[in-house]
Amino acid sequence: MRVFRLQVNGDTVEVAAPEHWTLLEVLRYKIGLTGSKQGCDKGDCGACTVLLDGVPTLACLSLAATVETSAITTIEGLLPAHRANGGEGADPVQDAFDRCGALQCGFCQPGMILSAKALLAKNPNPTSQEIKQSLSGNLCRCTGYTQIYEAVVLAAKGEQV
């Protein structure tokens, strides 16, 4: 067991977990942030994507013991951050995914949305090729991706209902 001091969604969280645990396990099974999903066990699907200092990173391949100095953003962090910035409703990217039907089973979406979020932070007007490239580490089995692209484009336009 080791006590990890993690910065998660703006909170500093101290949590004891076995030393060999991944960030994904600590987030899900110790802190209770189950929004980050586990789809493939070993870095092949992107469902566990979180942002480390704003950069899309796979929580299933990150040891909790190596991320104590990074600011971790999970899917649960977006809406509160949006509200803290004076926004209403959900985060614009989350909202766009809902409006565009980009969420079917929803299992890949926390990771997908965080990848999209990181893309838009860096590049507010991505081309369709840039969107495809940026999301190419997040497998979706439901949509065929089209409605996901539409959601990213809609979020980029900043439209919200």
């Binding site: 899900r28 099974y29 209770g32 942030l33 189950t34 929004g35 980050s36 999903k37 586990q38 999970t74 899917i75 649960e76 977006l78 809406l79 959900a90 985060d91 989350q94 909202d95 995914f97 809902d98 409006r99 039907g101 969420l103 929803g106 299992f107 979406q109 926390p110 949305i113």
Partner: peptide
């Protein structure tokens, strides 16, 4: 129309089986 569970899924609030502790 929006889906009844779209935002729950988008925000990580939706509970899947492995999320049950």
């Amino acid at each position: 129309n929006r889906k009844v569970d779209g935002l729950a899924k988008a925000t990580g609030e939706a509970i899947y089986t492995d999320d049950i502790m």
